[in-house]
Amino acid sequence: MVDMTVQTAEGEAGVGDYFALLKPRVMSLVVLTAAVGLYVAPVPVHPVIAFASILCIAIGAGASGALNMWWDADIDAVMKRTATRPLPEGRVEPGEALAIGLGLSIMSVLMLSVFANPFAGAFLAFTIFFYAVIYSMWLKRSTPQNIVIGGAAGAFPPMIGWAVATGGVSVESVLMFALIFLWTPPHFWALAIFRNEDYVKAGVPMLPVVAGDRATRNQILAYTLVLFPVAMALAFTQVGGPVYLLAALAYNARFVWGALAIWRRDEAEALADKFKVELRVFLESIGYLFALFIALGVDALLRDLGWAWSGWPVLF
């Protein structure tokens, strides 16, 4: 296997550095949720169009990542978690990251408008703008609610996938959006408690920095409790089914249990074990969205195969 991290010369960027600009881990979740949103939609899409559309959405997500890294290069340099990214280490020039981000943004939006429909293309353009400008350039450095409002950018992909198939939105796509939107704050705040010193050094007003760990623990539990019924509501729509219902019950119960574990802790206890509970909940919550969206896809596949229960209750 070729190591994409190998550089061509000292101080020069390799293929892996440019790929890292696109935030591939984030892109993988975007691709999954957008693909599921497209697949579970009631309007069938030709496989070639579906593949091209998901590729465009992935490119758009990568463009957002490059623009985010370009803008945040200064704070990335002082945070332990991000200090080894290509821009802080000088392997990629800021101008290169900006050019890549803008170029890929334009290309992905235009291509999706052609392959799918103008509404989906416009939705992708708005999502890129929301993440790069509204979140990265404005909210992230100005308010402790940055991850709450800015989290909408990461919640739009299943709606874009749905729009590729249907040309619009519906209660199902809005609930998929809400699932990600409500998951984002407790997911990132668990990390923010664990990495609090990083955000203090960078001057980013994450909730633990501004309001303290106790208030953040309360908010993690509150959002997780609100997330539970929203996740369950999706089970009783046209896209829900028994596989998703079981997955939602199991993973939401686990998420609430983790949020309760975080909420119960006092600061002395948290410091004693170096915030390992918060890190565990953060890592476990990554699998939450993957599991639930895969379950939605499995239910859709069962319906396509004629194996689904025809009497499944649809309430929304």
Rank of each mutant, 00 (worst) to 15 (best):
A272W: 14
A231V: 04
T216P: 05
Q219S: 11
V209S: 06
A291G: 03
I286Y: 10
F228R: 04
A211T: 07
G241L: 02
L283P: 05
R217P: 11
W257Y: 14
A215F: 14
L191F: 12
F236S: 00
L289R: 03
R214S: 15
D213G: 08
A291P: 01
V243D: 00
F282A: 04
A253N: 02
L279P: 07
F236Y: 08
G203W: 07
A231D: 04
F275Q: 02
V226E: 04
F236E: 01
P205M: 12
I193S: 09
A211F: 05
D266I: 11
A233P: 01
I193F: 11
N196L: 13
L279A: 06
P229D: 04
W257T: 11
W263A: 14
L225M: 05
L246W: 00
G212W: 08
D213S: 13
L260V: 13
L292E: 00
E284H: 05
T237R: 01
A222R: 12
L234G: 01
A233D: 02
A202C: 08
V243P: 00
A235K: 01
Y244D: 02
A270R: 15
G258F: 09
L289E: 03
V277I: 14
A268P: 14
T224Q: 00
D266R: 11
R280D: 12
R217K: 15
I286M: 13
N196H: 11
N196S: 11
F293A: 01
I286C: 07
V226W: 08
E197H: 12
W257M: 10
R195V: 09
V277Q: 09
M206S: 08
G212P: 06
D198S: 11
L289G: 03
L249H: 01
T216N: 05
L225S: 03
R264T: 11
L246C: 03
K274C: 10
Y199K: 06
A261H: 12
W263N: 13
A268L: 15
Y199H: 07
R217I: 12
M232T: 05
Y251K: 01
V277L: 10
I286R: 07
Y223F: 14
Y251M: 04
P242G: 02
E267N: 14
Y199S: 13
V256I: 13
L245P: 02
L221W: 09
L221R: 08
A259K: 06
A202M: 07
Y199F: 11
A270H: 15
F228T: 12
V281G: 08
L234I: 00
F282S: 02
G241N: 02
A215E: 13
N218V: 15
V230G: 07
D213R: 14
L234T: 01
A231P: 03
Q219V: 11
G212A: 08
G240I: 00
W257E: 06
W257N: 05
E278V: 13
V277D: 10
V204N: 12
A233H: 02
A261M: 14
F194P: 06
L289N: 08
L234K: 00
V243Y: 01
